[in-house]
Write a protein that binds this DNA or RNA. Sequence first.
RNA 1: CGGGGCGUAGCGCAGCCUGGUAGCGCGCCUGCUUUGGGAGCAGGAUGUCGGAGGUUCGAAUCCUCUCGCCCCGACCA
Length: 570
Amino acid sequence: MRLSKMFLPTLKESPATAEVVSHKLMLRAGMIRKLAAGVYSLLPMGVRSLRKVEAIVRSEMNRAEAEEVSMPVVIPSELWKESGRWDLYGKELLRLKDRHGREFCLGPTHEEVITDMVRGELRSYKQLPVNLYQIQTKFRDEVRPRFGLMRGREFVMKDAYSFHATDECAEREYEVMRRAYMNIFERCGLEFCVVEADSGSIGGSFSHEFMVLADTGEDAVASCTKCDYAANTERAELRSVESFKTSDDKKIVEVSTPGVKTIDEVSEFLKADPKSFIKTLIYEADDNVVVVLLSGYSDVNELKLKRILDVDTLELASDATIEEVTGAPVGFAGPVGLKDKEVKIYADWSVRDIPSAITGANKKDTHIENVSPERDFKAEYVDLRIAVEGDLCPRCEGGRFEIRRGIEVGHIFKLGTKYSEAMGAVFLNENGKERPMIMCCYGIGIGRTAAAAIEQNHDEAGIMWPRPLAPFDCHIIPVNMKDEGCVGAAEALYNSLKEEGLDVLLDDRKDRAGVKFNDADLIGIPVRVTIGPKTLKEGSLELKLRKETDARLIPKDKAVEEVMAALNGL
RNA sequence: CGGGGCGUAGCGCAGCCUGGUAGCGCGCCUGCUUUGGGAGCAGGAUGUCGGAGGUUCGAAUCCUCUCGCCCCGACCA
């Protein structure tokens, strides 16, 4: 491609609204432009780079013998009503009506459509398994889209769905896909890790996320320093505490704490360590009220709580409910004495580790000291906290958690029969018995992967594309467009490299060298060849890798081989 | 949804408090010079000041409503 003819509007300054590096650089490098919140157009440079991601994804999916299909973006509401998600999915599902008033939605994910596609067609265990995928635009009306392609409302996703006759078969395919995903992200040149994850509203029995490690990541990953356990912190299990720490038998005493409510305030007021507090939270779960206890320094993991309670909705109780349950204003709740009120108390394991605790007294302006969990209240002990740095690993002896930030670029789920049962996707097994198909699904954010690659590969001057994702392989810069030798050599190299099958960018604009160099650094093509009159006189050109600071001279008549060699070394 | 902020030229911003005929830098166009890390000089074009209503002799500026965008939180495959 000739840069003089390319639609490549680069920017010197970052638009004010961009916050993260990948977003800023994608805007500056002329890859994307915003149309509305979370909705972007891809410019030629953006398309090129996303196509590279798609090509890698497609080739690995095909190699794993999944088959490509293409499903509609506009989906009739009936399918979503069948699965039950029309009512459960919430506002993220963009709903619309056609001219007849029939309801549709824009597909945020395609379990319903694919299930509808195979049911009726696949009737026998002999026709299973199948694995179908597509690369397609999705729409999710996110509450807060941000960071450009990282979290858009409209985005390109590769989604795959497999159908099986048996659990074993489903799990085998899950493993095949896990490997395919590892190949994909390795081929993209990304530093990533695979973690256990929560399956969220998509449902299912287990799932793994593929996380590109980057400080700007929206997810936190806990990984063991000793064994290979790694999980999203919203999922990470913690080591259980089986026995109570013995208390020293002091009697409970009330202390007056006028107007002092939060753990910080009370610990300051009583000159007590926050670790000796039991934090009491009151939740409304579906239609019930539950009380949750944690050690004073930890935070509740609402996903774990939701799973334990097996409820759809969970939120902190209103002030009125808290007063009703505890008999005291907000800020003085505690577990002691609550047993009369028919509320279920769940305590995190960490509470067992506090022999003599301070809690609210369920009485205005009052706390109590010397509370002994075993002696003074009954609770069900479960894993409820969010994992933090230094927590003990649940899987090995002596390992501890390390917490890092990650960008979720891929997610695979074993769904089980959630959709096949709801939608009647059944087959006949060897015994002629009707059974729901076992399903798995597998997703990759294409644009997000490209964005994550930039987060991981950039410097002050711009993008440093990993070769496999780069919009072009080689960038040729004739330094002076009025120098015939210079232009001639550039044209010749441009043509030869194209003949080698490379994607080549020739900066044939009549601009000064500085402009070209700065744009080159910004758009980040991995190999750059500079052709200037000075070195040309000696029969050489300059070859520079974007990731290295220094250029080296190469003989003009060996230029093609040198460029190929440099690319192969990347 | 709660809290905060911003909408003025393609981009980045000033002007608003204290009302008086819209400005700066970059970019863009023309010409000459320049040509190895975002050139210099000269000339030039570009605005429903997000929108609607109001106050006023007069509104980018004050008031009301509204739309859009961004950040933090809540929420979320």
